[in-house]
């Protein structure tokens, strides 16, 4: 079964918390573990922060961030021992219409930052890559940047308990 949501927010730092919480709330339908949910929140926060900090620094007019999420429950089942596991998946896209990234390889290198004096760690893309199962970024100068991320959510059957999230 598929489900989706789309939202558009102003590229302002006060929306960072809202954006990651909204995506996390949407992901709850897949019954994620606390760790999975926290990974999603962190990755979304990194993507949104990039849009706020970098995308519109030359032109703040009409600065917006577009977030789309799609969830699906995969029909494929992987057997592990006598247990039968299903996977849910959430696809998240975070896009802006800002300045674009000149050199994506450079930008995604750990610790690389264009704003050294700003106490930026340069770890944003590395965290997105590490915390999510799939990650890609496409960008066009002057047009914007789009980050796509996918996280697999393990669902367990047969009454097996995993750490539950209190929604």
């Amino acid at each position: 079964m598929e489900n989706y949501m789309k939202m558009e927010i102003a590229a302002r730092s006060e929306n960072e918390s809202f954006a990651r919480s909204a995506v996390a709330a949407f992901a709850l339908t897949l019954n994620p573990s606390l760790t999975e949910l926290s990974d999603i929140k962190t990755a979304v926060s990194e993507a949104v922060t990039n849009c706020v900090v970098h995308a519109y620094r030359d032109n703040e007019e009409n600065a917006k961030i577009l977030i789309e999420c799609k969830t699906e429950t995969l029909p494929v089942q992987a057997h592990r021992g006598d247990r039968c596991e299903k996977y849910g998946v959430i696809h998240i896209t975070v896009a802006d219409l800002g300045c674009g990234i000149e050199d994506i390889d450079k930008a995604t290198t750990p610790f690389f930052t264009t704003l050294q004096d700003d106490e930026r760690s340069g770890m944003g893309f590395t965290i997105m890559q590490t915390f999510m199962d799939e990650f890609s970024v496409e960008s066009e100068k002057g047009k914007g940047t789009r980050v796509r991320m996918t996280k697999k959510i393990k669902a367990t059957e047969n009454g097996e308990v995993k750490e539950r999230v209190n929604a």
Binding site: T42, S45, E46, T49, D118, S121, M123, G124, I127
Partner: peptide, 10 residues
Amino acid sequence: SFMDSTGIGF
């Protein structure tokens, strides 16, 4: 309760 890479820089 939440920290992203901003915390590293901080």
